[in-house]
Amino acid sequence: MGCAMTDIKIKIGNKEFKNPIWMASGTFGYGKEFEDFLDIEKIGAIITKTVTLTAREGNKPPRIVETPAGLLNSIGLENKGADKFKEEMYSYLKKINTKIIISVAGGTGKEYEECVEKLSEKNFPDAFEINLSCPNVTHEGTKYQLIAQDPILTEKIIKMVKKKTKSVVIAKLTPNVTDVSEIARAVENGGADAVAMVNTYMGIAVCAEEQKAVLGNVVGGLSGPAIKPMALKAVRDAYKKIKIPIIGIGGIMRGMDVVEFMLCGATAVQVGTANFVNPDGYDLILKEFKDYLKRKNIKKLSSLVGKI
């Protein structure tokens, strides 16, 4: 190419990622589903579909519906449970030459703890993403609907899981709160290495003709370009209050969206809903991002982060 390329490697905790554009949990299966469409080793990190201690059947259909520029889902963390996941997926995941982040969730703090303990091995996974914010499951031990709406429980769970693993710990937060920066601070106090935000915005789709909710679960979580402006604000709000890195999520479709999240304070990002639209779309997002860096003569990614 002749001219020097910007170094796009980033470091979170003690791990180095080849680039800051990752795949969001629940939108990339366990990676396997997308192998046919793209070279998954180019991806900065793959975050698996959320794993829970025991198997979860998932919610009643319909589970998914399109809304203006968005996708409303109520999958309900369908998965086979930690043991089966380990048995069926570990040898495959370990062979992939990029960072693997396992998303875990639970109904109680104890479940998070046990799940992380069970899945932690000497050098695997590279990180856990603690999903404290799935809108489609219920929780015990809090008056809140979502764990990540409760700063005290959030901090407690992060502390608990940190003790159980040497892997990097990332907390995934919900935007369905009064002040997301308060929860981000709780996560930082709990010792998380980074915070990923945002999970979906809770919403409802209604069919006027049949006078009923479209989703079997009535309420779902909204993702896609529709939520990007709100997600950017959430990232910026948190950036002002915390020192740990932020991984921005919410409606990233193109390379320029990655830049927008970085300008608001994100060190890395996750591509989510876009994977459903273009299962081979990663290459273009990465290319557009690199092209921007070149065009704007950006030498260090950190010079972008939190600029606005």
Binding site: F28, G29, P61, E66, L71, N73, N275, P279
Partner: peptide, 13 residues
Amino acid sequence: YMACGIGACLGCA
């Protein structure tokens, strides 16, 4: 209802 068509979203259960 389907989002991805390739078994990733688990929407069309």
